[in-house]
Simulated scan of single mutants.
Amino acid sequence: MTSPVANILGVSFTTRGFDETVAHLTQRIDSGEQTHVMTANPEIVMLAKGHSAFRSIVDQAYVVPDGIGIVYAAKWTNQPIYERVTGVELVEALMAEAHKKQWNVYLLGATPEVIRLAAEKLSNRYPQARIVGYRDGYFRQDEEEQIVREIASKKPELLFVAMGSPRQDEWLARYRDQLNASLMMGVGGTFDVISGKVKRAPLFWQKLNLEWLYRLMATPSRWKRQLAIPRFVWTVFREKWRNRS
């Protein structure tokens, strides 16, 4: 039985909650299904709305609601998304499954120091998970084929790629059929958090759904990216009222 989806400005999100998402993705891996997971926030939705090539990648992915703006948009449009499925928490939960099932894991992206620290910390935290390889994201285009071959040779159940959006998902879509990975997921700045380089918002801010504001205060250079949020809100309400008329 397939789960219903919520359509937010043309992007189809799974409506599963966090625990159900982890269970379903684990089931897909166990059954040999290949999955490209995207954790989408308002910025990703607006990018997909404005770029048809990226939109086609999103349409083929398993899209989860990372971003409180998506949850609010679903509420405003009476659709059944009730909780966020954040990238950092999803990576940790999947690594816990990898620990239980002794899955192979490959990490790609971020800086050399960050990816090394992230691999080290994940290995210590989930010792039965097999981190079969990692490398930073600073490689030339002519090195990509060799990297793809290396990943494919390791046959990872989990492949986490941190190159920023939309590059990470474009890269996964381009090489999806060659990577020999069960679950592929673009993880943005997750390795920065896991490595300890970047601190996640305190739980108080998370519970208030103000993690985005904490990140903006901590890194003011993000303000241009945050402009996608008011544009997203305006577009959701405009579409809602247009559909009512």
Rank of each mutant, 00 (worst) to 15 (best):
V198I: 13
E113S: 15
K154I: 10
V132D: 09
G69H: 03
S31Y: 13
R16K: 06
R140K: 09
T190E: 15
K155E: 15
V187H: 01
I131Q: 02
Y72C: 07
M95V: 03
H51R: 15
I81H: 05
D19S: 11
Q226E: 08
K75W: 07
G186S: 02
L94Y: 04
A162F: 00
K207M: 01
L179V: 05
T15F: 09
N78A: 14
R167A: 13
N243E: 14
L216A: 09
V236W: 03
K49A: 14
P202Q: 05
M38Y: 12
Q128K: 15
G109Q: 04
V187R: 02
S195P: 11
M46T: 03
S182G: 09
G186H: 03
A40P: 07
L172M: 10
I194C: 11
G69D: 03
Q34T: 14
E113P: 03
V91A: 04
Q60C: 01
I70D: 03
K199T: 15
M217H: 05
K224V: 12
Q146E: 12
Q141P: 00
G87N: 06
K154S: 14
N180M: 02
M185A: 02
K224N: 13
I131V: 06
V45C: 14
E239K: 14
L47G: 11
L108R: 01
A73G: 04
L208S: 05
G133L: 12
G69Y: 04
F204Q: 08
W171P: 05
Q60V: 00
M217V: 13
G32N: 10
T26Q: 14
K100N: 11
V148C: 12
N78Y: 13
D192V: 10
R140V: 00
I229T: 03
M46Y: 09
V37Q: 02
M217G: 06
R200P: 01
Y134I: 01
V236F: 02
Q27A: 15
S195T: 15
H51P: 07
I8L: 03
M184G: 00
T111V: 05
G32T: 06
S182N: 06
T235A: 08
F160T: 08
E20D: 12
S182D: 11
Q206K: 13
I29M: 11
F54Y: 14
Q206D: 02
V58S: 09
Y62E: 13
Q60M: 04
P220V: 13
K240H: 14
W223P: 06
I68N: 02
E120V: 03
I194V: 15
A181P: 01
I229R: 03
D66N: 04
P166M: 01
L227T: 08
A152G: 09
N41C: 14
A93I: 06
T219P: 00
G188I: 09
A218S: 15
Y214Q: 07
A96D: 10
P42C: 15
A228I: 11
G32I: 10
R238D: 11
E33G: 02
L122F: 01
W76D: 09
G196H: 04
K101M: 13
Q226C: 09
V71A: 11
P156Y: 07
H99T: 08
A96G: 11
V58M: 15
L90T: 06
T86K: 08
G188E: 08
D66R: 03
G17L: 09
G17Q: 04
Y62Q: 02
R225Y: 01
E83Q: 12
Q168E: 06
P112Y: 06
D136T: 12
S31A: 15
